[in-house]
Amino acid sequence: MSWLDANLGRIGDLALTHLWLSVLPVVLGLLVAVPVGWWAQRHPRLGGVLLGSGSILYTLPSLPLLTIIPVILGTSILDPLNVVVVLSLYAVALLLRTAADAFAQLPREVVDAADATGHSTWQRALRVELPLAGPVLLAGVRVVSVSTVSLVTVGALIGVSNLGSLFTEGFQRNYTFEIVTGLVAVVLLALLLDGLWVLLGRLLLPWARTERSAA
């Protein structure tokens, strides 16, 4: 336990870094996937190719990708940016499918009604389609968020500090408690972040909750 007392500050720092390395890819992934997914379901042929390449991207193993990206970007292998880029790619790959499905399942009548009431394509997308797709997008974000928090730890193998560093250190020092601490911290961080997404969803999509309780 004295190890925990002595290292509490450092674990806090690692958790904070870990948080940033997890949040940034999910947000970037969402910002890319929503417009592209919206476009993809309106243009099925090219959109299908796009969704297909997204799922191929997701099959690429994380550790190899973490060592390939710095060579492409010209960054140092120790640069945290590599982790952000790789995890953003995964987030886009997963959320692209979610976004396309979310927009595709909107009731035809609602979209037509928006057109009939004089909404331009942009107004319709932003004021009608995006809010209605919100709950499905949120569900996708929660799945991606959990797996991203877990994947960040792989970065510790190439020297990017985060809670995963507790695994590599604990392993080298043959100290089980440090690894268990890391596992607990990672799971807690994933839960915390999930709670934040749910909270954000309630603030931004208040109707989603009333809909569910009415059903």
């Binding site: 799945v143 959990v146 797996s147 928090v149 877990s150 994947l151 730890t153 792989v154 510790a156 193998l157 995963g164 695994f167 590599t168 690894i179 890391g182 596992l183 990672v186 799971v187 994933a190 839960l191």
Partner: peptide, 8 residues
Amino acid sequence: RALPTLGL
């Protein structure tokens, strides 16, 4: 899915 593979 939440369990980090490296930790396990």
